[in-house]
Design a protein around this nucleic acid. Sequence first.
DNA 1: CATAGCCGCCTTTTT
DNA 2: GGCGGCTATG
Length: 706
Amino acid sequence: MHDTRYSQLTCSQEKAVFHTEGPLLVLAGPGSGKTRVITYRIAALIDSGVRPYNICAITFTNKAADEMRQRAAALGASAGAHISTFHSLCVRILRRYAAQAGISSNFSVYDESDQSRCIKQAVKDSELDSTNFPPARMLEAISALKNNLVDVEAFEAEAEDFFSKTLARIYARYQQILNKHSALDFDDLLMKTAFLLRSHPAVCSELGDRFKFLLIDEYQDTNHAQYKIAKSLVSQHNNICATGDPDQSIYRWRGADIRNILAFEKDWPDATIVKLEENFRSTANILQAADNLIAFNQKRKEKKLVPTKPPGKDVAIKVFDDELEEAEAVARQVTELAEQGASLKSMAVFYRVNAMSRVLEEVFIQNRIPYQIVRGVEFYSRKEIRDLLAYLKVLANPSDEIALLRIINTPARGIGKTTIDKIRDYAARNHITLIEGLGRAAQIDSLSKASKARIAVFADMLNQFNKDITGQVAPLAERVFVESGLAESLRAEDTKEKGTLENVNELINAAARYDQQAEEPSLPDYLQQIALFSDADAYDASSDRVPLMTLHAAKGLEFGNVFIVGLEDGLLPHERSTNNEDELEEERRLLFVGITRAKAGLYISYARYRTVRGQMLRTIPSQFLYELGIEFGERCDENQYHHEDDDEDRQTPGEFVTGQLVRHKSFGVGTVKEFVDMGENSIVVVKFKTGQTKSLVVKYAGLSKV
DNA sequence: CATAGCCGCCTTTTT
DNA sequence: GGCGGCTATG
């Protein structure tokens, strides 16, 4: 009955695609085609007569949204369905219903560095010391509150102890500052949308009419705010389709609540659940390793990964002396695979932290292997780009003081700190914004005549720009770049290596592309869009270079051959994520995600020494290595450099040797896998008969030799 | 008021 | 090892 477009779907996939009555949850493991189910479902809905306009699909990144749009188009699903991330959807809703949401529609979206400035100001305004109240910590706490839809009033009401009360003060002040700047941070986008839908039934029902079908991919990584938004949007019709895999939840630290997917059936009691257990991506050997690993997570619904492919190659676990050797081995293997005919884009290297890309990059350059670092925000954090964007931000939203302060003396035009302080002071006393203060500079007595003149020139320039800020973005950007003096000041110090001018050109080109693609190009829309740009969005799958990325950025992707480096205790699992069992389990899921990206080849490695902050340190193998159920040689190979202290390890009387049987009072009997001599702080890694592997500090562990 | 140089602080993952 | 902020100097 269905046409050939759907003929390659499996039975369960077909069920999910064509299910049209009520709520639907697709519980699916890695490589089972869940994103594909959503794409096909969009096409199937349209086939059945649903207008594309009435469909809303939520993806995890903008990149994923782009891809889904293309794939849906290839299936003949006509354009018009709304496909975007949660954050982009919220921007659209908030702009459309700005009045009801109590904000202005040209709001700025503040990124991490903007937020950081605001929070520092808030801590200072609250007359608190930033050593006792570190801004980053405060921001983290506020973010968590917003993700849980706790606004300032609610938090003030519940805050009882000293810390909470202080935090409440900072939170209140922080929101005041954002308000004054007409700015929303990432979390505000969600919180304000959730509140808008909650308190304006008319808006809620209008959107419910508009989006008659809501589809959400990667549902395991939604937070409470996103859950509430979804719930509101479908409250009239319950046409929600969510897909996800609890084992791939890796954003708990950002507020993702795994209970959303686990409790789906409670939220929608008449939900249909479709399970997709077959894996069409990886070889059986790779899946076995993934399965062995994830089985160590206690808080988990057991789920089998069913391979559809033959065993394939063995998973390789390699030990290297240091990170340089590790990187060189990756490069060698990449070259070898390439010689065997694999394309560079079919491989990928994953690591836990961005800083680890450095060595890899150097080695890849040396070996002339084309690569791409998947870091989208990098481009937008360059000074010259931020400077030009700051001009545009001020034009779009004159209240944006962060942007204004950035450009007021960039390039240098003789308006220094003293002058700015005087204007800020005046503005504060008269309850006007900084930009209004600039307009009234002539009336500020403390300013010198020369300063007043310079301010007048600057204010005049902004007014000139303001005359045509409607319509296309690229021409305006170009004009601002030249007339602001930025172009000239950059030209003076630009070199071929720095390529600052080239970067600005690229920005203007990107703006031109936006102008062509957007239905209704506008400056605020453009700025709001690029603020939501993420690392993963920078991944160019079509260019034949080896992508290097964090494990987080690898989500949703797949490659023929995958390298995962730095399987060391403190790095993966990361030391900042080992405070409790939940965090450790998330680290394990992170590695699980990395492993299951691989189709045919998987190369896992660790270095016995790693340079951290300029210091070469002895490492401990990650406990996850032992959990993969793969034998690997832990001592260094014959041909590798032999470190003297290894011999000391073995000779120190009373200490432990690899292979030694030991007994622990609660874990029982186990085998010593690694001994790290650090005097009285020595650490021993033991694999216990229970299957667990633990890193123990010798002096506390109370181990007895068997 | 601009600039250079130094000190001290932080350093996971990201929409 | 990198950046932001502060200070000293021109």
